[in-house]
Write a protein that binds this DNA or RNA. Structure first.
Lengths: 230, 230
DNA sequence: TAGCTTGGTGTTGTTATGACATAAACTCCA
DNA sequence: TGGAGTTTATGTCATAACAACACCAAGCTA
């Protein structure tokens, strides 16, 4: 083989942006304007520019697609997809990022995407362009496991949230219901997971709920494990 | 920006091959024969070839460096390193793989590497070429966490091993000692983690130990958590 | 003020865990 | 042949974590 037999290729970042909306785990997808797969749904993303770092590219794409500051929310590289034939345009290796955000009114006034929309993960599954179905599946599994061991759940919540909000995140992402009372105790007894703000939120009906903000911790000790037996 | 402003680059795989040797966690390093960093230690790896998948490239490099069949041992992609200036030769994005193997007499009759050697992780730390120190650190941390939640520890062991062997893996990788009796109970009570072969190993002195092989499980339920408080 | 709804705390029986004690199996050697 | 020494395997027990469930608290509405 010659020295020139090295793979010369382009590298891209793809974003799996997850949030909890309307009681469902949803992801942001774009409708592709160009070939290939024109008109079909795909994950937001794009090519890494010359001289640009991977994380920088992910932050930039996130800003372009959602108008949000990528530095302020959870953004985490989680896998690479590099099958030679995964992109019909040629060799493209894609670095996949997992982004978590609260349910904000996203402008999605993006430029690249001809349209961006939130869709429930359970609905979109099986109809994405390229190998994005697999990327999405991997991302969701990653997020589910991350809830067990890290404070990732707070990234789904706004700055102030109730324990019920936090529990709802777990229930929606895991797809199983949790005991509210035991959940409260676990969360409160975990050091630095959440800290009270002192304020309360008054619901249309029922007792007011204390508000909390995310604590300093990133890892959960002890972990909050889902029930794998069921 | 123009369409041609996309990063055109080469992609490489780097391997962190871990084993437990002589009571220490060791990794395989090569001495670089070419510039840059000639004569310095580095992780084994190389460029991905045209038309070659990432996992395929990792398996190939593993075979070249160690003479071992990559398909038969644990090989897992764990991170991507793509800072624009991480390689003085130009833009190189590296996909890092974590390989785990038992303490076999490795031929290391490689072709690329002018020399390959096992070195304790604690010794080599801080003296590797490129950004390989960081890659190694990330890999070790990954392996440590994987021991908690998966059956990765069996990958450090030969086909047949005792519970003491398995415990030793945990102790060496985690750097802390575990209670043999409680460890036994946990391991045996975990479904499909290990299964007895029926045979025994007779040590030079002491009671023979029952031999086990790896069970079918890949995830550990419940997990075996290290003591984070200490 | 009764009734509804949601949030938060107690109680209890069961299971997992950590610390430590003891028995079992083998070799060596007197 | 029968300890002594060494390593593996199993047992015990107090405590901690946990799931399931009862109950109380705090707001609103009627």
């Amino acid at each position: 083989m010659t020295t020139r037999d090295h793979a010369l290729l382009r590298i891209a970042v793809d974003l799996v942006i997850l949030t909890v909306r309307e009681g469902a785990l949803q992801t942001l997808v774009v409708i592709r304007g160009n070939k290939p797969f024109a008109g079909q749904f795909a994950l937001p993303g794009g090519f890494v520019r010359a001289g640009e770092g991977l994380d920088d590219a992910a932050v930039r794409e996130l800003a372009e697609e959602t108008g949000l500051d990528g530095g302020s929310l959870h953004l985490e590289q989680f896998a690479v997809y590099g099958e030679p034939d995964r992109d019909p345009r040629g060799r493209v290796v894609s670095v996949a990022y997992l982004a978590i955000m609260p349910d904000l009114p996203v402008p999605t006034a993006g430029s690249d995407a001809s349209g961006a929309a939130w869709v429930p993960v359970s609905k979109i599954h099986g109809s994405l362009a390229f190998d994005h179905d697999r990327i999405l599946t991997d991302a969701v599994e990653r997020a589910r496991r991350r809830l067990e061991l890290t404070t990732l759940a707070t990234a789904f919540c706004p700055a102030e949230f109730t324990i019920g909000d936090l529990r709802s995140v777990y229930e929606v992402v895991w797809g199983e219901s949790l005991d509210p009372r035991n959940f409260s105790r676990k969360v409160i007894n975990t050091e630095k997971f959440i800290e009270p703000t002192g304020a309360k939120r008054i619901p249309p009906t029922g007792r007011p709920a204390a508000l909390y903000r995310a604590g300093g911790a990133t890892t959960l000790n002890p972990p909050i494990m889902r029930n794998r037996s069921r």
